[in-house]
Amino acid sequence: MQDQIVSCYGQENDPFHFERMRRFQPFERKNHYHRNFEINYLYQGRRSYFIGDRSFTVEAGDLVFIHEYEVHKASILDSPRHERLVLNFNKLFLEPLDAPMLHELLEPFRLPHRVLRLKVADQLFVQGLFQKMEQEAEKREFGYELYFKQLLTELLLFAKRQMQRQQTAEHEHVSPMHQKISAIVQEINRSYTEPCSLEDWAVRFHTSPYHLSRSFRSVTGFSLVEYVNMTRIKAACRLLKQTDDKIIDIAQQVGYDNLAHFGRQFKKWAKVTPGIYRKMETAD
């Protein structure tokens, strides 16, 4: 059978977007991270998720929370067949909310346990919110975008309260390989400014470069070198927004001795030059 789009609104990088999909064929997204917050809801099936530096088993009825700019990848468990809804939004979409309230509502995206395991009654409540979104997307009647904001706020408030009641699924490693890659990712996040080759990482974690390379890409969707460069560029983006440091100094701070190489990597991951990025992010 062919994969089926059940419902869809907008595009992935829009301020608000969702897509409900039934998949029957193997599907795994590669090299995936974006500037929007993401919520996944699994209607049917089981999936393996790698989010940030942790792995989770996600089952039907689970809500998954992925922070903006956070690396994530979903993989097959048991069977490729599953049905899920993915919802993306950015902070600007919820701009009428004051900053303290928005900070509280986004707490589920900051917690170590990103999978909210719901009881049947709560599953029906969440599915009802998504059903209303789907109906609004289809009809496009007056005020539908305002209603999207109301429904999203209600969903975030529900998740925040559920997290406070400690209804999250326990963090678990899907396999020993996921556990090892998680440890490597955590170490990269701590020491990305230091020069370290694939061979160095293989020695540090008692494996061969070939096996490490294959395993790392299988779990994260990135090669190890890509992941290190991406981590460095994300750090450079923060410094460009938050400091007045010179670009050459920022390049050195995140681990690049060669300014031209830094510029190439920055444009690869951020799609613009460091100078243009700073102007875009700091403009009034």
Rank of each mutant, 00 (worst) to 15 (best):
V219C: 03
T282E: 02
R217T: 05
Y210K: 05
F148S: 02
R190I: 00
D53G: 09
T220W: 03
E199P: 03
P112D: 08
P80A: 12
Q179V: 02
D284K: 13
T153E: 10
M230P: 10
D62G: 00
H72Y: 12
P80S: 11
I248T: 15
S75C: 12
E38P: 01
M1L: 02
S48I: 10
L105Q: 08
K73F: 04
M177R: 11
R54H: 10
K268F: 15
E68L: 01
D257T: 09
E134T: 02
A270V: 03
M177G: 00
S208P: 14
D78T: 06
E19G: 03
R20V: 01
D249A: 12
Q25C: 02
L157P: 00
Q150K: 10
I248V: 15
P96L: 05
Y43P: 06
F65Q: 01
A159Y: 11
F56C: 06
R22Y: 15
I51Q: 04
S175T: 13
Q166E: 15
V228H: 08
I66F: 06
E104F: 09
Y49G: 03
P274Y: 08
T207N: 07
E199H: 14
M177F: 02
L212E: 13
F216W: 09
E104N: 14
L224H: 08
L239I: 07
Q44V: 01
Q253G: 03
F148Q: 04
H82V: 11
A236W: 07
P96H: 06
Y41S: 03
Y277R: 08
R204I: 01
Y33T: 08
M21L: 14
L87V: 06
Y43I: 05
K132E: 14
E187Y: 12
I188E: 06
E134S: 01
L92K: 00
L259K: 11
R140D: 04
E68P: 00
L92Q: 10
V185L: 15
Y43C: 00
L240H: 07
H34R: 05
M230A: 11
Q179K: 15
R278F: 05
L198W: 04
R84S: 03
L42H: 00
N40E: 11
F37T: 04
L106Y: 10
D284Y: 13
E187D: 15
V58D: 02
R140I: 00
M163T: 11
S48P: 00
R232Q: 07
V272H: 08
R217A: 04
I188C: 13
I250A: 05
V115A: 07
E172C: 04
N229C: 03
G52Q: 05
L102Q: 13
K139S: 06
W269G: 01
F130K: 01
E136A: 09
E172T: 09
P15T: 09
A159K: 05
I250G: 03
L156G: 09
K139R: 12
T153Y: 13
V86H: 11
G45S: 04
I276P: 07
R204D: 10
S197N: 05
Q166H: 15
L106N: 12
Q253V: 05
F56Q: 06
A236L: 12
P112V: 12
R47Q: 12
E194L: 13
T193P: 00
